[in-house]
């Protein structure tokens, strides 16, 4: 979706302001939100693309004015509701009053915490041969899906070069809709800065994205 989360190339957000000696969490609740999101994901309540989409679907003003973990909390509440794990009255009261729904992979227990701490693989068996080879010129499609996608707006319609091939991975545009992994070839595609931002852009800069094959046409 063409949301405010798709920030590459936008102006007006000001300087980057690193914080000296930044703590891992700025308040205890941030850690709880992070841990709940990960534990629910590991239990199979939702996948990573659904969790990303839950934040992308926040109203733009909320997205832009909320801290990172506030976005996680708001998105997670919506996921819990949308996927039927609790209802609005339960969240409002802070207590369960309806039966629990089964979790695909079961509740994450302390013995299995490694399932969260160790990142899983997103590689999946290929459905066919790769369409592109390293060095091929490709054009990012000019597409505007209304649902979650990982093709940022700033490359759409532009020509780049295949630099790496990462095998076949679960396809976010499908996984987010609970339609299965639909594995697709994944490439690093490199663009010249001037192709993206015009002739006055810094000629020493090259930018790449990782693009799934359905995002690309031969060029």
């Amino acid at each position: 979706m063409n949301g405010v989360h798709d920030m590459g190339g936008m102006d007006g957000f000001g300087k980057v302001e690193p914080e000296t000696d930044e703590p891992v969490f700025h308040a205890a609740w941030e850690g709880r939100v992070m841990a709940m999101m990960r534990a629910m994901g590991a239990a199979g309540a939702w996948n990573i693309d659904m969790s990303r989409a839950s934040r992308e679907n926040l109203p733009p003003d909320v997205y832009l004015s909320s801290s990172y973990y506030r976005k996680w909390q708001l998105g997670m509440e919506q996921l819990v509701l949308d996927r039927g794990f609790a209802d609005a009255a339960e969240l409002a009261e802070g207590h369960a009053s309806t039966p629990a729904k089964p979790l695909k992979r079961g509740t994450l227990t302390p013995e299995n915490v490694g399932r969260v701490l160790n990142r899983g693989s997103f590689a999946r068996p290929a459905q066919g041969p790769a369409r592109f080879a390293i060095g091929d010129r490709v054009r990012a499609k000019n597409i505007h899906p209304a649902t979650h996608t990982r093709l940022p707006r700033y490359v759409r319609g532009h020509v780049g070069v295949i630099e790496m091939i990462h095998g076949t991975h679960a396809f976010p545009d499908s996984a987010v809709l609970d339609k299965g992994d639909d594995p697709q070839w994944l490439y690093t595609v490199r663009f010249d800065n001037r192709d993206l931002w015009g002739p006055d852009a810094d000629p020493t800069v090259k930018v790449s994205i990782d693009a799934f094959e359905p995002y690309l046409d031969p060029a």
Binding site: P152, V205, K206, V207, I209
Partner: peptide, 10 residues
């Protein structure tokens, strides 16, 4: 300058 935008699970 080479910018890597992490748009997948790499």
């Amino acid at each position: 300058i080479r910018v890597w935008d992490s748009t997948a699970e790499t």
